[in-house]
Design a protein around this nucleic acid. Structure first.
Lengths: 344, 344
DNA sequence: ATGAAAGCGCTAACAG
DNA sequence: CTGTTAGCGCTTTCAT
């Protein structure tokens, strides 16, 4: 197959073979009503002449872009990279292209991205909201136009938009209860400044566990942060400076938990001897830091493939509303490791 | 802004305001030659009527998709997630959309993706080749059509295609030399089955270092693998089963190195006491495993932003061939950690 | 089984 | 400054 100077169109092929453009188009898309010989001739000519179909034209005509948009807060976490890995796999097998944008956890950017994706006429949308997003009006245009939208991880409840999440309340409840059972009496909680639904749910689970075990909730043990690596170091100092130091810490994400632990270790704090630790996400770091970090495991890859699969279902059975689950709770489990195990 | 039932086009606006579609189009794209009042009226009407520009049509007409494609082997590594993070940031600031595909290190998939991206008329392409790719013919169509293509990390030398890489030969040479200076006499090398340019270069650096220090090259110390986590475990067993065990190992990537170390530790091998270790990439794992892994550091984020920037330059100054560097070597540094330090 | 013709929604000469 | 006109390349009725 040689590569021609000029773009070859179906009409070039049509002229070459003395047939109509319509027939070429049909032959190329393997339409059943085209004579098998014609089909063959067209396909041969296309190859020989170096024809490359122009999706731009096809998209316009069909009012379908074959593109799925995905909007995430941040791309650089191992959880998200696994989500994308799974999403891309499922969608590309189904013949869709994936366009990716990150809101960098800014609402205004999220809005701009949503608009751009709408203008690009994406066929469907996968969204994990920015931490600071406090409503989902900017996605209403998709809903109104019947463009399927599936949330994952950080969702906004909406009757038309399914979501794939985990039960954050329960997971947080369980991991906090575990700390209590290990003997912790004063458990600090490192969480987000703005309580997005995810952080809010985990906070809720933390409080529930305290309550259930008759441990009074102490506001001063709640440490709001950006949940970054730097924030972990800061949180460590907050902990070090407390007059009455906690004997357990539940951090709402692993990255932050790990950097917090490292800083505490640098200051001679023994983990879990002095302070027991628990995180969230089971990021790679958690099983490598010493002591290994107790955490909540839920798989990005599975969440990605599931969300993508749900989206495909909606795309294929746009009208079939039967048997639809609106909210999918992905399994999660707490993984108990040395960071939280009672000594001796 | 209300959301209408039917798609609003520029002609709906034109009719509403009794002007021509062309003027509406110009007003919307803020063309200088449109009366400021008309412009205002059009923009107001557009907002009021819930107009959303149809990129599909615009793309076809302008023969420009505003889309940049990126092809990578695998999305789920921290290095790659940082590359994407950087690329997305630069390109989205420049008004481009990013479409992402992973070849899963399969050449045939890479070819299919390249074709699909061509058909989608991407404006530019960012590529990190599959491990097994042994020529880049499938990218020739882009070159011939003047569609800028920039390689990063795993490149194919081509006069028209710039690349952003690191000096793999030198980095491997340095890290192997370091092992030698720490007293290692028998250094194994865990590498890829198919020697892609990257793995080949690192292999070359390894051999150069041996030669320079008068250590005879021993074929039996070269362990070809898939470079996965599982492969690391297998490599560990290969090492354990050697009659004359090496006292140092240079693994061509961190993930594999870490899983190999963990398996060896499980079998009682002391690191670096019995075997010193060095990896490549400075992935998160390397600074968390005990002992911390000596490795080569190069930043995915920087590589991503640099590659994207070069692509933008080509896009904006398509013809200006002056001062172009064809091959950009990104800085890399070896990071010496406990895994390779001579004891006592 | 094939062709003629219309048009997806937008942009860009060109003319005025 | 604005309008007219002609497509971009493809798909899809509707005929034949």
């Amino acid at each position: 197959m040689s590569i021609p100077e000029k773009e070859i169109t179906i009409y070039d092929i049509a002229r070459e073979l003395n047939i109509s453009g319509a027939t070429v188009s049909r032959a190329l898309m393997d339409h059943p009503s085209v004579n098998i010989h014609t089909k063959q001739k067209v396909q041969d000519a296309a190859k020989r002449m170096g024809y490359r179909s122009n999706q731009l034209a096809s998209n316009l005509r069909k009012k379908k872009s074959n593109i799925i948009g995905i909007i995430v807060g941040n791309l650089n976490s191992s959880f998200m990279s696994n989500v994308i890995f799974g999403v891309e796999k499922v969608l590309s097998d189904a013949g869709y292209n994936l366009i990716i944008s990150q809101s960098l956890d800014s609402v205004s950017k999220e809005i701009a991205i949503a608009q751009a994706m709408y203008n690009n006429r994406v066929d469907g949308l996968l969204v994990s909201l920015a931490y600071s997003t406090e409503n989902a009006d900017h996605f209403e245009s998709f809903v109104k136009r019947g463009i399927p939208l599936v949330y994952f991880d950080r969702a906004w409840p909406h009757p038309e938009c399914p979501s794939v999440e985990i039960d954050n309340v329960r997971a947080a409840y369980e991991i906090t209860s575990h700390l209590i059972k290990q003997g912790c009496k004063r458990i600090a909680h490192v969480t987000a400044f703005k309580l997005s639904s995810v952080a809010a749910d985990r906070f809720k689970g933390y409080r529930q566990a305290l309550e259930e075990h008759s441990i009074p909730f102490d506001e001063s043990l709640v440490i709001p942060t950006q949940l970054t690596l730097e924030a972990g170091v800061e949180a460590a100092h907050t902990l070090l400076n407390m007059t009455e130091r906690p004997d357990g810490v539940f951090v709402t994400n692993d990255a932050c938990a790990v950097s917090c632990m490292q800083e505490l270790k640098r200051h001679g704090v023994r983990i879990p001897g002095d302070i027991a630790f628990a995180g969230f996400n089971n990021d790679t770091e958690s099983s490598i830091i010493e002591p290994n970090l107790t955490t909540v495991n839920y798989k990005g890859y599975e969440m990605g493939t599931t969300a993508a699969q749900i989206l495909l279902d909606r795309l294929n059975n746009a009208n079939d509303k039967k048997g639809r689950k609106n909210r999918l709770i992905q399994p999660s489990e707490i993984i108990i490791r040395a960071s939280s195990l009672h000594q001796g």
